[in-house]
């Protein structure tokens, strides 16, 4: 087995635009899946709508690709009805945090055993460049022609506050860090969230003087700092920066186990 056995090679190339680093998340995911030797027949991938929601159909797993934002709701039904199956939700930021925000919060609260990977490209790519709940203030989008007027979500803080027991952030530039983070998340028992900063040169870049894929990735390199670096920085210096690393890695009873314990000895 190699990482290539975890993708549908016959479907490639990916449908994505040149330089879309959602694909880099796919790249890292396939390698980590291979490293962990995930059982393709006992793992279910759940995804939904948008660019990040479509890419997982290129993975060689059973894939349930659902309505916009609802990946974690469907995933909850999968995991609770078949706790022996590993469940992984691959989502975009609009998918997970705007239309799917309620499901995201409650999946975290329940600490149901699954991995939620959120690719944050800060824009709605598939629909043509509208602003997302992650679009940075001032950035231009088709629906923010005067610049983004709303503040952006901090995905990791939301996940932590809601009760996720593994929360980390990585990005498409620091790819070794990304692989390590995905590996840790996939091995975690409980609700694990990984936010991955990705770049959309076509829809975000083009409207923000960053149409070049390499410049977009350079931006991610510049705006990310490690936890150690962040500790030495002032709040002013940290403005606009994203800290990468693990924020939560704790153990708390997991939902399907709580169910199993509560009903042990009952019926079949």
């Amino acid at each position: 087995m190699s990482w290539k056995d975890y993708i549908k090679q016959q479907m490639f190339p990916l449908f994505t635009c040149s330089g879309c680093t959602h694909g880099t998340v796919t790249n890292a995911f396939a390698r980590v899946a291979d490293e962990l030797k995930l059982d393709k027949n006992k793992t279910v991938i759940v995804c939904a709508i948008g660019c990040a929601g479509r890419i997982p159909t290129f993975l060689d797993f059973p894939v349930l690709r659902v309505t916009h934002g609802r990946a974690l709701a469907f995933a909850t039904g999968i995991k609770l009805s078949r706790p022996d199956v590993k469940v992984i939700a691959l989502m975009g930021d609009g998918d997970a945090l705007a239309i799917g925000g309620n499901h995201f919060i409650h999946a975290a609260r329940r600490n149901i055993d699954m991995t939620a990977i959120v690719s944050r490209n800060e824009i709605y790519g598939m629909t043509g460049g509208q602003y997302a709940p992650t679009t940075p203030a001032g950035a231009r989008a088709t629906t923010a022609p005067y610049g983004m007027l709303e503040p952006a979500f901090d995905t990791c803080k939301v996940a932590e506050a809601a009760g996720a027991t593994y929360v980390a952030r990585s990005d498409a530039y620091h790819v070794q860090h990304l692989q390590r983070t995905l590996k840790a998340a996939l091995q975690h028992k409980g609700f694990a969230v990984v936010e991955v900063l990705t770049s959309c040169p076509t829809q975000f870049g083009r409207r923000n003087n960053l149409a070049d894929p390499a410049k977009m990735l350079e931006r991610i390199k510049e705006m990310t700092v490690t936890k150690a670096q962040a500790e030495k920085m002032t709040p002013e210096e940290l403005a606009g920066k994203f800290v990468i690393g693990e924020f939560v890695n704790t153990s708390r009873p997991e939902l399907t186990e709580i169910y199993a314990q509560a009903f042990a000895g009952m019926g079949v």
Partner: peptide, 14 residues
């Protein structure tokens, strides 16, 4: 109810 409907379809696919 959106989530309820999604969850039962998740179970159904299993």
């Amino acid at each position: 109810e959106i989530a309820s409907m999604g969850a039962i379809l998740g179970a159904s696919v299993m």
